[in-house]
């Protein structure tokens, strides 16, 4: 059975990490997923900044995104932890408060939009485990990556899911793919994005550098994350710390890329070779160098 979702890309995936989008679009057909683009979708908006600066602005803009999905009549597939948090929490707030729903709709109506809470918000991990199922995932694997040692970067928001279930979902997907998740001792630690709002230097030094050091001493082949925010910060950290003479070069993969690789897609097809942090060592290790 093919399942359709309203695809919510967010900001960082389409603009900074097109390889994550490309790999997601490649793995959708084998997993019997139909992704419907949400034309005109905007930033979710980012919870750490907009919600703090002005709760109303955060709520209205996210309600607009929810309304777009409702007009498509499909549940939202959020590929980003931050987008999931915003859309999920905004939806919960609106659906559980009739007065708030009326207020939000009075603003949306000016744009000829309306949100009545008919669609749900689902995280990519949730869709993979609860809707698609790990069995279907295993069946689609063409190239087991059992040689690969990965460091997992969950991203804070996964712990916020009901009973922190997304954390175990991430683990079970990694397990199903057959790659070795290395225990590097700092999985839970934040990448440093919220701290960078206070001081970028501190975020890089105290969080990102700490994590990268741990990953390096654990000798991982690459790190894998489901959060474009973490991806962006840790990528930026590797490039910035290089200027201080610290060579990390830990290849980074988004979870969709890892899945696409195990489905037999070539790294060049999904853009693994187009990362800002070099991935050559990883591609060599996978034995996928040739075209």
């Amino acid at each position: 059975m093919t399942r359709s979702y309203a695809l919510f890309l967010g900001c960082y995936i389409p603009s900074m990490q097109p390889f994550a989008e490309a790999s997601l679009r490649r793995i959708a057909p084998p997993l019997k997923m139909k992704l419907i683009d949400m034309e005109g979708a905007t930033c979710c908006p980012v919870p750490e900044i907009v919600r703090l600066a002005d709760h109303d602005a955060w709520l209205y803009v996210s309600a607009r995104n929810l309304a777009l999905a409702e007009s498509l009549g499909k549940d939202i597939l959020a590929v980003c932890n931050g987008c999931w948090e915003t859309l999920y929490e905004a939806r919960e707030a609106i659906v559980n408060d009739t007065q708030l729903m009326n207020e939000v709709n009075s603003h949306l109506n000016l744009l000829d939009k309306t949100f009545e809470g008919k669609v749900k918000v689902k995280h990519f991990l949730e869709v993979m485990v609860e809707d698609i199922g790990l069995e279907s995932l295993k069946k689609a694997i063409k190239q087991p990556l059992s040689k690969l040692n990965v460091a997992v970067q969950y991203g804070c928001k996964l712990y916020k899911s009901p009973d922190s279930k997304f954390v175990s979902y991430f683990d079970s997907i990694i397990e199903s793919l057959g790659v070795n998740a290395i225990d590097y001792g700092a999985e839970k630690i934040c990448c440093g994005f919220p701290l960078s709002l206070y001081s970028l230097d501190e975020a890089m030094e105290e969080r990102a550098k700490f994590k990268l050091d741990k990953m390096q001493s654990a000798k991982v082949d690459c790190m894998v994350t489901a959060c474009p925010g973490c991806f962006d910060v840790l990528e930026k950290a590797q490039l910035l710390l290089k200027r201080q003479g610290l060579q990390y070069e830990i290849p980074m993969l988004s979870l969709t890329e890892l899945i696409a690789l195990s489905f037999g897609f070539k790294p060049q097809e999904i853009g693994v070779d187009k990362h800002r942090v070099k991935t050559k060592t990883l591609i060599t290790k996978l034995g996928m160098g040739g075209n």
Partner: peptide
């Protein structure tokens, strides 16, 4: 996770 966002939210509010 030690993200310190609670402190940022507090000082902002």
């Amino acid at each position: 996770s030690g993200c310190y966002y609670c402190m940022i939210a507090c000082s902002f509010y």
